[in-house]
């Protein structure tokens, strides 16, 4: 896994680079949603963290070829998606889960996934059927694949959309908050499905759940105000808060951020007051510190 802020994009996947972005910018009117982002990603799982409105969804839509950047160059699986022919080729090897996926309520999960497979140009019916059943079983819907989607719970519908993204063993998987609506057991199942995909390709996912990132991702990108303000491993993100997090029973005016962790106990990040014992930092602490310092 490679993730750099200002690296030279590799022209092919042979060198291990699966995704390279150089100076990607996207604005909606006066709002710059993605601002001069450089990225180089190889195999593995990359977590995208950031507050609401940081530009994560816009960046993921660009990486999924749904949105074209206003400026900058992008290389996905060694191809430039700005060209229609290359974009089609990329799309054959790409899986995408949008933030609020909507499905056809009258279809069964099997029919929905099969339909998406057709649109990904998998025209061998027997293969498609096998693959659709396999991905639905992988997301834990093996026993519900013949029920109408409208009768399924929100979490199950999310898993149908995830299965649709996974069909065809994509080399590049772009997932916008994939764990939304999933219970803890389903989250664990999701981790193993994604870990399997990451063996052969690149998975980029956005989430608000730092625990998810710590458990799943080899690499973390923190985004704020359209820019990538931090990049590293989950351990390194926790390490950012090393010696800068502490707990006390009172408000600390010098802290960058304070929050209640239990009855009467407050946790703080910032400059450690002298004589205070630092607490063991978590990914949460690192994330809060990074987003505060970036402003």
């Amino acid at each position: 896994m490679t993730t750099t802020a200002h690296s030279t994009p590799s022209p092919s996947t042979d060198s291990g680079t699966m995704l390279a972005a150089d100076g990607i910018t996207k604005a909606f009117g006066s709002l710059v949603a993605v601002d001069d982002v450089d990225l180089t990603l190889g195999r593995g799982i990359v977590g995208l963290l950031g507050p609401n409105g940081a530009g994560k969804t816009t960046l993921l839509r660009i990486l999924a070829t749904v949105l074209a950047p206003d400026r900058g160059t992008l290389s996905l699986l060694g191809m430039d998606p700005a060209s229609p022919a290359a974009r089609t080729e990329v799309r054959r090897r790409l899986g995408y889960l949008p933030q609020s996926p909507r499905l056809y309520g009258g279809f069964t999960p099997l029919e929905m996934v099969d339909y998406v497979a057709i649109l990904k140009e998998h025209t061998d019916r027997a293969w498609r059927r096998r693959e659709a059943v396999a991905v639905l079983e992988a997301v834990g819907l093996g026993d519900r694949m013949h029920k109408r989607i409208r009768t399924l719970s929100g979490g199950m519908q999310q898993r149908v959309a995830l299965a649709a993204a996974l069909i065809g063993s994509p080399d590049l998987l772009v997932l916008d908050e994939p764990a939304t609506g999933l219970d803890p057991e389903q989250r664990i199942a999701l981790r193993s499905v994604l870990a399997e995909t990451a063996h052969r390709g690149c998975v980029v996912l956005s989430t608000h759940n730092t625990a998810e990132v710590a458990a799943l991702c080899q690499h973390v990108l923190v985004m704020d105000a359209g820019r990538i303000c931090w990049s590293g491993t989950p351990a390194e993100l926790a390490g950012v808060a090393e010696g800068r997090v502490w707990e006390s029973d009172v408000e600390e005016p010098t802290a960058l951020r304070s929050w209640l962790t239990g009855p009467g106990t407050r946790r703080h990040v910032g400059t450690l007051p002298s004589g205070t014992t630092p607490a063991v930092p978590t990914v949460d602490d690192g994330y809060l510190l990074v987003t505060r310092l970036s402003r």
């Binding site: 749904v66 089609t88 995408y96 949008p98 909507r102 929905m112 649109l119 990904k120 140009e121």
Partner: peptide, 17 residues
């Protein structure tokens, strides 16, 4: 198309759909 967001990056283009 209610599933337009999900289907946006499939190789069969939006115009063909």
């Amino acid at each position: 198309d209610p599933a337009a967001a999900l289907l946006a990056p499939v190789p069969v283009s939006a115009m063909r759909r």
